[in-house]
């Protein structure tokens, strides 16, 4: 996975991706409260560091840890605090959804959402701005 840090500048221009989004993905979610705990418990972090791990079952999962500016990403990607607080997890968005794709190519899509993983995503509006990260 290339080093990838999501900053507020990534939101300055919303580009519409014309390519269809692949259907097969593993969806993982983290609540705003859980992310807030990572950010604010102990040393105040500058963001979160997400890494894809592989469970014993072979299924992909994610691990969320603290990110401090200029730290080595070690095959993970960082989402800065300002992005989470002012762009993705505010208002009615209480969840960060992470879509893990393994086919046709490995990639991640993250988006803020009103809905947790196991909740129906009913209602008009769907999801927030999707950020795709090549892995």
């Amino acid at each position: 996975m290339p080093d990838f840090i999501i900053t507020t500048a990534d939101f300055d221009s919303m580009q519409q991706n014309q390519e269809p989004i692949p259907a097969g993905f593993e969806l993982k979610c983290r609540t705003k409260a859980a992310i807030s705990r990572v950010l604010n418990t102990g040393n105040r972090a500058d963001g979160i560091l997400l890494r894809i791990i592989k469970r014993a079952s072979g299924k992909p999962d994610i691990r969320v840890s603290k990110y401090f500016n200029k730290q080595d990403l070690n095959n993970g990607f960082a989402v800065l605090r300002s992005v989470l607080e002012t762009k993705m997890l505010r208002g009615s968005f209480d969840n960060l959804n992470i879509y893990i794709y393994t086919t046709p190519s490995k990639s991640l899509i993250i988006a803020g959402s009103e809905h947790a993983c196991n909740e129906s995503g009913g209602g008009e509006g769907g999801e927030g701005v999707k950020v795709r990260i090549p892995t």
Binding site: F11, D12, M14, T86, K87, M88, L89, R90, G91, S92, F93, A111, G112, E114, G122, G123, E124, G125, G126, G128, V129
Partner: peptide, 11 residues
């Protein structure tokens, strides 16, 4: 301002 968090319209 650009940012998410606006509500979807529930059913």
């Amino acid at each position: 301002e650009i940012g998410d968090g606006y509500p979807t319209l529930s059913h």
